[in-house]
Write a protein that binds this DNA or RNA. Structure first.
Length: 836
RNA sequence: GCCGGAGUGGCGGAAUUGGUAGACGCCAGGGACUUAAAAUCCCUUGUCCCAUAUCGGGGCGUGCCGGUUCGAGUCCGGCCUCCGGCACCA
C-alpha cells in the first residue's frame, strides 16, 4: 500500500548458481499447489496475507521483502500440513493514478491496470505462493460494487451520516482529508500544509465503536506493543464531565472537562475561533469589530503555523457566562488554542490548574484562583509561575471544600447530575471518519439526493454505481469531476421516481482496504460480498503482515469494519487478525528511503537476473530480523551465494554416494549404531530443527539461516557418513530451507530422487533421542571469573563436577593457598567456585 | 511535553527464564590448490598488556553513573543519545 516507482535495468551478469525458479514456478502452477480450499478443515486452516499493494509502477525491494516473508510463512505451514490461504490484491483507487493520468494523458484505469500487470508479472517471477485465482482489484466494478454495498449497510444502520463542518482540506490535492490523513497539519499524500474548509460531507460514526476499539486492544495478544500503543493514543479516551454553563440570554453553553473538581477556579470561558457554536452567538455591538478582526487573523493561520508558534491569542467577546455551581459571571473569550473539534469546541479556563489556561490568563491579565491544594498550603494565584495540574484537596469550593482527588470529581459530577447541570462524559481523540472525496478515481458514493425525499440510498440491486469512463476532465477543481458529468449525475429518485441527483463524491480509498480480506474468501461471488460459511471457515486472519505506517489508519478502520459486520450478522469474529507483524522498511545502503528522484532504487527484477531468486531472498532474510529495517547492499549477496553453493555441493554429493534410488527422508537413527562423527552430526541436525522452528516463528530468519550455516559447517563434506545417513542429512537440511529458498529446495528434492513437491513432504521432526550426549562442556568460574572449561559425563552429579573442576590444570593455580567456601552449580552450564 | 522502540567489534547482527559476550556472515590479513587468475578449502580477526623457540597468561570491555547478585548486555534507580508516533485533546 505504499507507492514509489522504479525502473528495472537488465544485466548480462549470470548468477553464480543456476536459478531453477522458472521451471518450478511452472510445475507448481501445474500442480495447483497454492490453490486454497473454499471450506478448509477449521483445525488446519491458515490464513496469511500481506497488506495489498498500491499499483504505482513495478514492485520494489520493500515489496520483495514483505511478500517473500508471508511466502515463507505460507510454505512452512503447507509443510506442516496446514490448509493455507495466501492471497493478494490491489488497492487500486487513489490520487497518484489521477496525477499520472493528468501528466501522461492516460485514463487512470489504463495507468493502474498496466501497473497491476507489471507488478503481478514480477511477483509471479519471484515465485510468491499467492493463490492468484483469488486476486482482487478495488477499482473494478465487481469489487467496488461491494464497497458501495458496505456504505449502504453503514447508512442503513445509522453509521453513515452527512454533516456540514470544518474539514481538513488540502489545497494542493484539492480534496478533503480524514483526520488520519491530515495528522500534524500535513497532507499524507503531498506533504503540503492542510487548511480548513466548511463543507457538507459523509462521515462514518466510528466513534460509536471507540470504546470497543480501545478496550479490545487488550485482547490482541499477537499484535506488537508499538501498534497497540499508537492505537490507544489515537483513540485517546478521556473521562470527565460535560457541564452546562449558561449565557445571559439563558441559553446553554456546555463545555467538557476532565477536571470538574476545579470548577470553582474558572475565571474565564474560551471558544475556538472555528467552533460552529460561535456563529450562533450574538457578539455585543461594541466588541464586534475587534472579534471579527481576530477571527479573520485566526482563520488565516494554518495548523502548521499554529504549531510552530505556541503563543496563545484571544479576544474578549464581551459576553458573560454563568458558572452553574458558584453562580459567578465570567467573561467569554475567543481563543486560538481551543480546538473546535474536541468536546464542544469550548472550554472552561482554570488558570491555576491548567498550564495553557495559565499562560492565557497571564497574557490577558485574567484572575488566577487556586481551588485545589496539593501541598502544605493553598497557593497564591498572583505569585504562581506555572499552573499546578496535580490532584489534591478542593478548597475555595463552597460545599465541596475538603474533598480529595477522585472523590471531589465524583461529588461534583453527582451534584451536576442531580440538578441537571451536566453529566459524566467520555471524550475521544478519535473523530468520525470523513469518507467523501472530491476526486474522480474512487468508488462513487451510492447515494441519491432527491428534492422531495432527501437522501436516498441506491437500492442494493442497482449496485454498482459505475464510475463513468467517458471524456472526463480529471483536473481537480475543488469539487468532484463527476459533478460535471450529467449522464452520471441525473437519475430518477428510487423512492418517488422524480428527478434527482447522485452524490458527486467518491469514497476515501481506506474504505476499499477495510474489507478486502473478506473478498479473498469469495472473490467471484456476485450475490454477496462474501459467503458467510466461507468466512466462518477461514477467519480470523491468522497472520497479517504490513508496515507500521498503517497503525492508526487502516489497522483501526479494518477493526471497525470487522466489529460492524459482526454486529449486523455477517461475521462471527470480533477482531480480524490474530497475529500482526510489522516488517521493517528496505532502505538503500546509506539508510535513505529508496525513491525514483534520489536514483537509488534497486529493482528486484534486476537483482534476480543477476543472482537468481533464492540467493536474493537469502541475502534479504539474512541481513536483519524481520521487524527491523534493511539497508540493502549488493555486498550481502556474496555470503548468500557461497552458502547456497555449499548446500548444493552437499546435496549433490549425498545423491552421488547413494547407490540405490530410494531412502526414507524422515528416518530416525538408533544413536548407538552411529559412528562418533555421525552421532555428533545427528545431534547437530536435530538441534538445528529446534532452533529453526523457534526462530522462524518470530520471523528471525537471520538466525534461522545462521543455524543452517552452522549445520552445514559441522557436517563438512559428509564423506565419512554412510550414504543413507548423509542423504537424510541433506533431505532434512533442504526442507529446513524450503520456506526460504523454495525453488532451490524443490530442485534439490528432485536431485535426491523425490517427486514434487517438497511442500507436500512434511516438516522435519526432532528425534529427541539424538539430543542426548555422553559428555557436556561446563565452564568453571572462580569468584565469578571464567578460568577454565571442563568436559564431564552428562549424568555427573554436582559433587563430581566440582571435584573435576578443582582438579583442572587451569583452575588449580587459582585455588592455591585458598579455601573454597561455596560452589554454585548451574546444571549443563557452569560451576562457580567461591574461594577466600 | 506525552507515548512507544532502540543504543553490543571496522560493518550487518547473535546471546531461552540473570549463567562462558561477540554465534552466523561481510570486510580485512595470512595460507593451501593453480603456470596464473577465478572459484573452492583452511587459519587469524573486540581491545590493551605480558610471554613468544613453545603451549600460553592477565587486565578492560555491551551508551553513562550507581545498585542488587556468587554472577548483569539481560534486573532495579537515576541520566544521555538516536529513531518513530501524537501534539495547545481542556
Amino acid at each position: 500500500m505504499s507507492e514509489s516507482e522504479i525502473h528495472s535495468t537488465t544485466s548480462p551478469i549470470r548468477p553464480r548458481i543456476p536459478d531453477p525458479s522458472p521451471k518450478w514456478q511452472k510445475r507448481w502452477d501445474d500442480l495447483n499447489l497454492f490453490r486454497a480450499a473454499d471450506k478448509p478443515d477449521p483445525a488446519r486452516k491458515y490464513f496469511v496475507m500481506p497488506m495489498f499493494a498500491y499499483p504505482s509502477g513495478d514492485i520494489h525491494m520493500g515489496h520483495f521483502r514483505n511478500y517473500t516473508m508471508t511466502d515463507a510463512i505460507a510454505r512452512k505451514r503447507m509443510m506442516e500440513g496446514r490448509e493455507v490461504l495466501h492471497a493478494f490484491g490491489w488497492d487500486a483507487f487513489g490520487l497518484p493514478a489521477e496525477a499520472a493520468a493528468i501528466k501522461r494523458g492516460l485514463h487512470p484505469e489504463e495507468w493502474t491496470l498496466s501497473n497491476v500487470a507489471q507488478s503481478k508479472a514480477t511477483l509471479q517471477r519471484i515465485g510468491i505462493s499467492f493463490d492468484w485465482s483469488r486476486e482482487v482489484n478495488s477499482c473494478l466494478p465487481d469489487y467496488y460494487k461491494w464497497t458501495q454495498w458496505m456504505f449502504v449497510q453503514l447508512y442503513k444502520h445509522g453509521l453513515a451520516y452527512r454533516k456540514e463542518s470544518e474539514v481538513n482540506w488540502c489545497p494542493n490535492c484539492n480534496t478533503v482529508l480524514a483526520n488520519e490523513q491530515a495528522a500534524g497539519g500535513i497532507c499524507w499524500r503531498c506533504e503540503g500544509p492542510v487548511t480548513k474548509k466548511n463543507l457538507t460531507q459523509w462521515y462514518f460514526r466510528i466513534t460509536d465503536y471507540a470504546d470497543r476499539l480501545l478496550d479490545d486492544i487488550d485482547t490482541l495478544e499477537g499484535w506488537p506493543e508499538t501498534v497497540k500503543s499508537l492505537q490507544r493514543n489515537w483513540i485517546g479516551r478521556s473521562h470527565g464531565a460535560q457541564i452546562k454553563f449558561t449565557l445571559e440570554d439563558g441559553s446553554d453553553f456546555s463545555v467538557f472537562t476532565t477536571r470538574p473538581d476545579t470548577i470553582y477556579g474558572v475565571t474565564f470561558m474560551a471558544i475556538a475561533p472555528d467552533a460552529p457554536l460561535l456563529r450562533n452567538l450574538t457578539i455585543p455591538e461594541k466588541r464586534r469589530g475587534e472579534v471579527e478582526k481576530f477571527l479573520a487573523e485566526a482563520r488565516g493561520r494554518t495548523a502548521v503555523e499554529r504549531m510552530a508558534d505556541a503563543e496563545k491569542r484571544g479576544v474578549d467577546t464581551g459576553l458573560r457566562v454563568t458558572n452553574p455551581l458558584s453562580g459567578e459571571k465570567i467573561p467569554l473569550w475567543v481563543a486560538d488554542y481551543v480546538l473546535a473539534g474536541y468536546g464542544t469546541g469550548c472550554l472552561m479556563g482554570v488558570p491555576a490548574h491548567d498550564q495553557r489556561d495559565f499562560e492565557f490568563a497571564r497574557k490577558y491579565h485574567l484572575p488566577i484562583r487556586p481551588v485545589i491544594q496539593t501541598g502544605d498550603q493553598v497557593r497564591d494565584g498572583a505569585a504562581m509561575t506555572d499552573a499546578d495540574p496535580g490532584e489534591g484537596r478542593m478548597v475555595n469550593s463552597g460545599p465541596f471544600d475538603g474533598l480529595e482527588g477522585q472523590a471531589g470529581v465524583d461529588a461534583v459530577i453527582a451534584h451536576l447530575e442531580k440538578h441537571r447541570l451536566g453529566q459524566a462524559q467520555t471524550q475521544f481523540h478519535l473523530t468520525d471518519w470523513l469518507i467523501s472525496r472530491q476526486r474522480y478515481w474512487g468508488a462513487p458514493i451510492p447515494m441519491i439526493h432527491c428534492a422531495k425525499c432527501g437522501v436516498v440510498p441506491v437500492p442494493e440491486d442497482q449496485l454498482p454505481v459505475l464510475l463513468p469512463k467517458g471524456n472526463i476532465d480529471f483536473l481537480p477543481k475543488g469539487r468532484s469531476p463527476l459533478a460535471d458529468v450529467p449522464e452520471f449525475m441525473n437519475v430518477s429518485c428510487p423512492k418517488c421516481g422524480g428527478k434527482a441527483e447522485r452524490d458527486p463524491d467518491t469514497m476515501d480509498t481506506f474504505m476499499c482496504s477495510s474489507w478486502y480480506f473478506l473478498r479473498y474468501l469469495d472473490p467471484k461471488n456476485d450475490k454477496a460480498p462474501f459467503d458467510k460459511a466461507k468466512a466462518r471457515a477461514w477467519l480470523p486472519i491468522d497472520y497479517y503482515m504490513g508496515g507500521i505506517t498503517h497503525a492508526t489508519g487502516h489497522l483501526i478502520y479494518f477493526r471497525f469494519f470487522t466489529k460492524f459486520l459482526k454486529d449486523i450478522g455477517w461475521l462471527e469474529i470480533e477482531e480480524p487478525a490474530t497475529i500482526l507483524f510489522n516488517h521493517g522498511m528496505v532502505m538503500d545502503s546509506q539508510g535513505q528511503v529508496m525513491s525514483k528522484s534520489k536514483g537509488n532504487v534497486v529493482s528486484p527484477i534486476d537483482m534476480i537476473a543477476r543472482h537468481g531468486v533464492d540467493p536474493v531472498r537469502i541475502a534479504m532474510y539474512f541481513a536483519t530480523p524481520g521487524e527491523r529495517e534493511v539497508l540493502w547492499s549488493d555486498a550481502g549477496m556474496v555470503g548468500a551465494e557461497r552458502f547456497l553453493i555449499k548446500v548444493d555441493h552437499f546435496v549433490r554429493g549425498a545423491r552421488e554416494a547413494l547407490a540405490t534410488a530410494s531412502f526414507d527422508p524422515d528416518r530416525n537413527f538408533d544413536v548407538s549404531q552411529l559412528s562418533d562423527a555421525e552421532r555428533d552430526a545427528y545431534r547437530k541436525l536435530n538441534q538445528t530443527i529446534t532452533k529453526v522452528d523457534h526462530d522462524f516463528e518470530l520471523m528471525q530468519l537471520n538466525t534461522h539461516i545462521a543455524a543452517v550455516m552452522e549445520l552445514i559447517g559441522s557436517l563438512g563434506s559428509g564423506e565419512s557418513f554412510t550414504p543413507e545417513f548423509r542423504a537424510v542429512c541433506a533431505a532434512t537440511m533442504i526442507r529446513l530451507l524450503a520456506p526460504l529458498t523454495p525453488h532451490m529446495s524443490e530442485e534439490w528434492w528432485e536431485v535426491l530422487g523425490f517427486p514434487p513437491s517438497i511442500f507436500r513432504a512434511g516438516w522435519p521432526k526432532v528425534d529427541r533421542s539424538a539430543l542426548a550426549a555422553d559428555t557436556m562442556q561446563i565452564a568453571v568460574q572462580i569468584n565469578g571469573k571464567l578460568r577454565g572449561q571442563i568436559e564431564v559425563p552428562s549424568d555427573a552429579a554436582e559433587d563430581a563436577i566440582v571435584a573435576i573442576a578443582e582438579r583442572d590444570p587451569k583452575v588449580i593455580p587459582h585455588l592455591e593457598g585458598k579455601t573454597r567456601v561455596k560452589a554454585i552449580h548451574v546444571p549443563k552450564r557452569l560451576v562457580n567456585l567461591l574461594v577466600k
